[in-house]
Amino acid sequence: MENSIFLTILYAVISVIFITVYGLFLNGVVIKIVARVHGRFGPPVWQPFLDIIKNNAKRTMISHGIMYFLGPVFRITGGIGTYLFIPAIYGSVMFSNLSFSGDLLLVVYFIFFGQLGMALGAGESGHPYSAIGVSRGLSQMTAFEFPFALSIVSLVIQYQTLSISAIVAAQQGGILNWTMITNPLATLAGVIALLGMNMHSPFDIVIAPQEIPIGPPTEYHSAFLGMLQTNRAIFNAAKLILFMNIFFGGATNIFLLILKTFLIYMISVVIGVSFPRFRTEQSIRFFLKYPLLIGILSVVISIFRQGV
């Protein structure tokens, strides 16, 4: 029994290291791709690592208070936790993480953990831009969570389970079994919500560099910022893996995982480089219009299919 606990911890550590490295490289590759789209060379793919090392290497830091200090800790706990509650690779013991402690609902709610902590930390910095950023971020978050929730409900109707492993299991055996094919509307609603979650253009209202320089992390720097950047990589990858699991058939090995999450991320990236930014209320209205309708439609259709 003790052995198994240690093994679980060991696997979790390996899994977290993998996701960190992968997430940072993913960011690097995407920056590179965006640069190529702009006709630039862009920084090397390992630039995110350098940035994090540099930030941690800063010799001075300032703290605005205990909550400010804990903000990044909350944030990264949220990121790693979210990842650890998702089974990353179907059938793999090492990458099933700690998914036995809760189901899809847990993951969806755990996403908020880090955001809340971070928002509190940013709030204590006393910077008005931080507060404005959080206000915008939360406002938008409510809006895209609604279609996302509906798409999850639609999945639950379809698969009659909330367990991510079970949802992945149900999608095995070829692309035709993927939710993307079997429940395209739910996938569509979910993916549009993902655009909001990833906060690329046109939904980058939180960071909005032109108005509120960077939003919540305005006052974060040095090791704090390094931690936030690390989390950004982990959290991003975790979300992608979640989406891969529930909509795109999951992954049976690491290469499939990398390929699929990369492609899913590209959706955000491509849309991000092609569109200008929304205003906050436009973004809210956007999510509560077509994505919401698609979500409702997918639930209704699932109910009917269930009935048949």
């Binding site: 706990t77 936790g81 650890l84 700690l98 402690s101 009659q160």
Partner: peptide, 27 residues
């Protein structure tokens, strides 16, 4: 439909929380 282990989640969250906290405390 699903399952939930509140006790375990609490423990996991606390452990994960400790790691970055220690790193920051060192700074």
């Amino acid at each position: 439909l699903g399952y939930w282990n509140g006790n375990l989640i609490m423990i996991v969250t606390m452990i994960i929380f400790m790691i970055p906290l220690i790193w920051l405390l060192l700074r």
